[in-house]
Design a protein around this nucleic acid. Structure first.
Lengths: 174, 174
DNA sequence: TCGAGCATGTAACAAGTTACATGATTTC
DNA sequence: GAAATCATGTAACTTGTTACATGCTCGA
């Protein structure tokens, strides 16, 4: 993931590793934390793979500037085009970069994900209904307060996400 | 984490590795996915560390039952008592098991986390205000539609989480 | 009898964290 | 002149995934 996030940030223009990290903190830090220990080796690999070009500046700080190549751009777009998956939580990361993606793929993926969410919600609602029935039979309900709350939270969360997707699919008011 | 989730599930009573996975899917799968490749080695380590006792059943399927020891219970509770941190997303996992924790620590941790959320929200709102001002100056606003949407989503999400915490702290209606 | 589910495990690999290590520059 | 920040990197470690490997049992 560091690699794709780095490529995504470098779509803006060339910059140093240090800058990439700073920008990631100001933008995608909600969904993704980057450490130098993963970033610098990743940049090295990307250069070796021809996805980036390294440029040594001989200014005082001897920092290096990284620029994305066509190959890198293609690789990044390939990643963006993949179906959205919520299991790895990378879906929001991808959507953050969706302005770079062509409308068609964008809509296809957003709608597919929307459907997944819908069936997930239906499933969870079924489970919840069952659980709360079972729970009512028990004398010691309060012992499951946090369990139940967290399940409830999960459901709420998915419903919120579903609503969010509806809005961005319709390019609704934000 | 597999280790703590396994211990948490075994607080209910002894069962096989296979069962642990099944139960994890029915309960915490929203926040945590378990694979056998991590589960079985984890169980082995927990036995070696004295946190679990392994019991061979000689029934046809030759499955093994795992039971939590006092040491394991203490280790699990130690983990539960740690402050909640949202960076690793393990906070909901912990809260799921919070019925096992004493009220005092529970409230202390929930309230501390609530405060963190609050300052996070304030910070994000400030950033958002700045960004949307800057954005209005630009002629090509639409090129940042997804970026802006995702940021908006993040803020919404944290607000929702904040509300959730308010409710469970007050033992409010769910 | 055949496939789904029960049941356990290993090995290679992937990805990232943490701590360490270093040094220049800017700002107060 | 001290502290913060810019700037890059490595090595050991942690954690988990994926694919492979095996074999039993129960119901249709």
């Amino acid at each position: 993931m560091v690699e794709y996030v780095s490529l995504g940030i470098l779509m803006q223009g060339k910059m140093s590793g240090y800058d990439i990290k700073k920008i990631s903190e100001q933008s995608v830090s909600l969904f993704f934390k980057m450490s130098y220990g993963s970033l610098y080796p990743a940049l090295k690999r990307l250069v070796e793979a021809g996805h980036l070009i390294e440029e040594e500046t001989n200014d005082s700080k001897n920092k290096k500037l990284y620029a994305i190549t066509d190959q890198g751009r293609n690789s990044f777009l390939g990643w963006l085009r993949e179906p959205l998956q919520s299991n790895r939580r990378e879906h929001l990361l991808k959507i953050f970069f969706y302005d770079y993606l062509e409308e068609e793929t964008r809509m296809r993926n957003l709608k597919a994900f929307q459907l997944q969410l819908q069936s997930g919600i239906a499933q969870m609602e079924a489970v919840q209904a069952m659980v709360s029935k079972e729970l009512e039979q028990l004398p010691n309900k309060e012992e499951f307060y946090y369990r139940v709350s967290v399940m409830h939270y999960g459901l709420q969360f998915f419903k919120m996400e579903h609503e969010f997707f509806s809005k961005i699919i319709e390019k609704g008011d934000l």
